[in-house]
């Protein structure tokens, strides 16, 4: 029938409008019931799969809940506990990078002997294809994918060539963005460290038996320090596990508090160091 297409089309649109209101009704009293407040009037909203009406996310005020695995641009992890880069300049990320946008200069001591630490680390993000191979293959969990996508700049060069300072983030930042994976990695690391420690102890004991008392002192020193470290790790793992258990905004808050505290401490330390 002539005009039936038009009526049908209008019908679909009207239905859509109605559904939008129904969806809104379900979210009563507020659209932001389930959202995470980021401050500054910005919120992360969750959209459920069965939302039939309008799906608009009003970025920048509202943000999508980015999944943990979201990947944008790589970041380098700064181990706040050990106070060093996790990166050992092994170059695996530079080798697997498909567009070859990672450039690493390995550090060397005064004698020119290479040390496992990057002196410079560049990523040309005007080439990076966000494939996350670097994060996948890094054996030291030193490079991960950042969730930060607000990177637009007015000038390309050199702003889009990120150097080490720009790429580095503290490990807590990573832990907030990638909680599940972080935890898995921590467990693996933990196991490995225990193993290493056990081996080291064994070795130390053997060495101690063989060698003189003065040397034994030294070996006693080492495990002591690492057991402290293990303690700290355990504590943190436990906290993380707890945080994970109670899923939702509370957990996130707790994590944030923790993160905040750590960051503040670190800032203080940095200032002290600077002075």
């Amino acid at each position: 029938m002539f005009g039936s297409g038009l009526l049908k089309g209008l019908g679909v649109t009207i239905k859509h409008i109605a559904e939008t209101y129904i969806d809104d009704g379900k979210d009563s009293p507020s659209r932001y019931e389930n959202s995470i407040d980021l401050g500054n009037g910005r919120k992360i909203i969750r959209q459920s799969m069965d939302q039939e009406g309008l799906l608009t996310i009003q970025y920048p005020e509202e943000r999508r809940l980015l999944p943990e695995r979201f990947r944008y641009i790589p970041m380098l992890i700064w181990d706040t506990e050990k106070n060093e880069d996790r990166c050992t300049a092994c170059g695996i990320c530079a080798k697997v990078c498909p567009p070859q946008c990672i450039w690493i200069v390995r550090d060397s001591d005064d004698a020119g002997k290479p040390i496992t630490r990057p002196a410079e680390f560049y990523i040309d993000i005007s080439v990076c294809m966000s494939c996350s191979f670097c994060a996948e293959f890094c054996p030291f969990d030193a490079i991960k994918m950042n969730h930060d996508f607000e990177l637009a700049v007015y000038d390309r060069y050199p702003n889009l060539i990120y150097d080490k300072a720009e790429l580095t983030v503290p490990v807590e930042y990573y832990a907030t963005l990638w909680p599940v994976q972080y935890e898995q990695e921590e467990t693996v690391r933990h196991q490995k460290e225990e193993e290493d420690k056990r081996k080291a102890e064994e070795k130390a004991r053997k060495a101690a038996e063989k060698k003189a008392a003065a040397e034994a002192d030294k070996s006693a020193d080492k495990p002591k320090r690492s057991s402290e470290e293990i303690q700290a790790l355990k504590e943190r793992a436990a906290a993380a596990a707890k945080a994970k258990q109670s899923d939702g905004a509370d957990a996130k808050k707790a994590r944030l508090e923790e993160l905040k505290r750590k960051a503040a401490e670190r800032a203080k330390q940095r200032r002290e160091n600077d002075e």
Partner: peptide, 15 residues
């Protein structure tokens, strides 16, 4: 063939 040798360990960025 990739990987290129200029990227590591002396990969000072070169445009």
């Amino acid at each position: 063939a990739k990987p290129f040798r200029s990227r590591h360990p002396k990969g000072g960025y070169q445009w």
